[in-house]
Design a protein around this nucleic acid. Structure first.
Length: 111
RNA sequence: GGAGUGGGCCAGACGGCCGCGCGACCGCGCCUCAAGCCGGCCGGUCGUGAGGAAAGUCGGGGCUCCACAGGGCAGGGUGCAGGCUAACGGCCUGGCGCGGCGACGCGACGGAAAGUGCCACAGAAAAGAAGACUCCCCCGAUACCGCCCGGGCCCCACGAGGGUCCGGUGCAGGUCGGGAGAAAAGCUGAAACGGUGCGGUAAGAGCGCACCAGCGCCACGGAGACGUGGCGGCUUGGCAAACCCCACCUGGAGCAAGGGCGAAUAGGAGCGGUCAAGGCCUGCCCGGCCGGCGCUCGGGUACGCCCGCGAGAGGCCGCCGGCAACGGCGGUCCCAGAUAGAUGGUCGUCCACGACAGAACCCCGCUUACCGGCCCACUCCAACC
C-alpha cells in the first residue's frame, strides 16, 4: 500500500482535491500526477483535535484496514481519508459503508 | 480473621486465518547492466516488535555544534549532617521538629543582638517604647455624690422600721491634687518584653532563690547534624517560599544538534592590517570575536538518500563489601529503531470482563494519570491453643 509522504504532495492534495464526507469520515482526492506509476496512493489523517496519540493511531489503523477491505489504493488517484469523531468506536461494517459512500461520491467506485 | 503501614511485581490469557515495521536467509522471479557482482522491487520462510508511566518536559548527565581570555558587578539555582552517584533540586542512613496507640508518615530544616521592611481586625501597646493610658500603693483636700453621727417633720401604738429636710472640727468610698512604682491586672489577638512557686517589700519587680523554657560558655560522647551534664549573667516576639546577609553551584543552544553523498545560477576558506557605524559573546563594564577593507586560494546550499541511531552509567542470576542508597567480581543474554511514522482486523474458548495511555538521540530522577490483581515484611485489634 503506497502512501503519500512528501509535504508538498500533501499540500497540493489539500488545495486542489475533490472533497466529500459523511458523519464518520471525509475524503479528498486528486488525479495522479503526470509520469507517476498508475497504482495510486493513499493517506490517512487523524487531526490533533481528535485527541491523544493513542486515539489518533487507532483511527489511522481502522481507516487503513477499511481501505484494504475496499481494495484501495485506487489506480490513477491520490486519496486522503480523514478520520472524524466516532471512527475509533464504530463497528467494521459501519466503517465499510462509510468508505463506500464517500468513494462513490467522488466517483472512484460505481454506485 | 478484621483494620492498617512500607516495599516489589503484573498490565487480560491461549489458539486459527488475513495484514504491518525491522533484521537474516532463500528464489535460479522481475528491473538495472554488454554480462556478472552490488543495488532496487516482488514473493516465501524464520526471528523480532512500545510503557510503568513511553506522558508533563520540571531537574541532572552523556553526546553534538558554537563560544572559550579572563576578571568584576548584576542575574539564576541550592540550603540540617554524613554518605551514594556521571550528575542533580534525586536517593540512602542519621539528627531535630510535627502527626499517629503503633508499623510509619510529613518538613526550602542556614542567619531575625548587620540593616531595611511587614504584622489585617481587635487591642493601652504588634517591637525595643513614651513608661503616654487604664492601673497599683501612699499622702493631702472634702464644694458636690456617698457613708457615719445628731436633730425636726411625715407614715405610725412619737418603740422598731421607712421616707424627707436641716446641721456636723466626722469618714475618705467616688471625685480632685501631689508623690512613689513599672510588678500584678487590662475583656483583644495567631502572637503581648520569660513561666510556676517561695521569700522579700509601704506595695512591689530576676530584687533573691528553686525548678522549667531560652541564650552564652565549658566538659564529655559522636565523623558531623546533635545529645548528655555542669556553670554563668538573668532574657534579646514572629515573618527571610519579604528585600537581604552567609556558604556552595552556575557559558549558550539543542538530534530540525551535527556530519556525508548527489546537477545548474557566487558564496566560502586562509592570511594581513584597522575600527566609524552594525552584529555576537545571557545583561552591563573592561576585554575579545565576527563583519566591513586588501591579498591569495580554488569549490558549496534548497530537495532526496545515508550516517548520527542503539552493546548501553544495559537486563537477569550468583558471590563479596556496606545498616542502606550503592559499589566490586564472575557468569549469562542481545532486548523496537519507524521517518506522515510499524502491534491492527476477525473468529473461537476462558476469567477477576481489561484503567491510564503510543518510543522518535539516549540515560538517571522527580511529578502527574490509572480498572484491578498477586507476592513479601511489619503494626494494631479480636479469637484459638
Amino acid at each position: 500500500m503506497l502512501t503519500i509522504t512528501s509535504p508538498s504532495d500533501i499540500d497540493h492534495l489539500f488545495k486542489h482535491a475533490r472533497r466529500a464526507s459523511v458523519p464518520l469520515l471525509g475524503i479528498l482526492t486528486v488525479p495522479t500526477a503526470e509520469g507517476r506509476a498508475v497504482t495510486g496512493r493513499v493517506l490517512f489523517v487523524a487531526g490533533r483535535k481528535m485527541g491523544g496519540a493513542v486515539l489518533r493511531n487507532r483511527c489511522k489503523r481502522v481507516l487503513r484496514e477499511a481501505c484494504r477491505r475496499a481494495e484501495g489504493p485506487w489506480p490513477g488517484a491520490d486519496v486522503a481519508l480523514l478520520a472524524r469523531a466516532g471512527v475509533a468506536t464504530a463497528s467494521p461494517p459501519e466503517i465499510d459503508r462509510a468508505v463506500k459512500a464517500v468513494l462513490s461520491q467522488v466517483g472512484l467506485v460505481p454506485r
